[in-house]
């Protein structure tokens, strides 16, 4: 699967990350400080960089800025214990593609790595099994039957389609579909997803959208 570089100085966290990512099949390299991280990241052989914000030697933000300045577009996930909202903005403006505040559930990180490792292409027609989504014509069909979606449901489905086969977490949906960087409370994501699901899967023998317990959802074609 993906080749991942973890730049993290805390030994226990680093070990936890490396083991968990290897367990799901990624090949993982580890750098314990910013300078080593920059040298390894500069080689350009990774699909995703996981970078801690606070590192000895060279801090994570400077590392990513240096990598970006060198013209590399490798996706970056920042990890941080800094929960201040301003830091998040700095991280994303500094070249990060995603931002996770410690502590986080490992499933959340794995889901985000999968999504970043397989950047969705810019197709105008998304298809999955018998589900078709025409982004230009603004229409959705399941087995040829038109499906009417509300704007929010449309954006949900588009996100699922673009990340078909990947696990998508609640927090990811809130960030990408709503633009919320906070949890508006239980029920919001579930309600909207269940309404969308009723329109897309309702009445069909094969379910495409699956709930991943305790983590989120996964839209995938039947085996």
């Amino acid at each position: 699967m993906a080749r991942i570089l973890v730049v993290e100085d805390d030994v226990e966290t680093a070990e936890h990350l490396v083991l968990s990512l290897r367990e799901v099949g990624h090949s993982v390299d580890l750098a314990a400080n910013g300078r080593d991280g920059l040298v390894l990241a500069g080689s350009g052989r990774f699909d995703v960089l996981i970078v801690d914000r606070k590192l000895p030697g060279l801090d994570g933000l400077s590392l990513v800025k240096a990598v970006r300045a060198a013209g590399q577009r490798t996706p970056v996930i920042f990890l941080t214990a800094l929960s201040a909202i301003a830091d998040r903005v700095d991280g994303l403006e500094g070249g990060g593609d995603d931002y996770l505040v410690k502590p986080f559930a490992i499933a959340e990180l794995i889901a985000r790595v999968q999504v970043l490792a397989r950047r969705a292409e810019n197709a105008s027609l998304l298809t999955l099994a018998d589900l078709e989504m025409d982004l230009v014509g603004r229409s959705v069909r399941r087995a040829g039957v038109p499906v009417n979606l509300l704007p929010r449901e449309w954006r949900l489905l588009e996100f699922f389609m673009r990340n078909a086969g990947q696990v998508v977490t609640r927090a990811m949906l809130l960030e990408r579909v709503w633009g919320f960087n906070f949890d508006p409370g239980t029920g919001v994501v579930e309600t909207h997803v269940s309404r969308m699901r009723k329109k897309v899967d309702g009445g069909f023998a094969v379910e495409l959208l699956h709930t991943v317990r305790g983590i989120g959802y996964c839209l995938r074609a039947p085996d």
């Binding site: 704007p151 929010r152 709503w178 508006p184 029920g187 919001v188 309600t191 909207h192 309404r195």
Partner: peptide, 12 residues
């Protein structure tokens, strides 16, 4: 946006 987000939750 907030209204649109919460209306379905309230309806349910």
């Amino acid at each position: 946006t907030i209204v649109e987000t919460f209306v379905p939750v309230a309806e349910d």
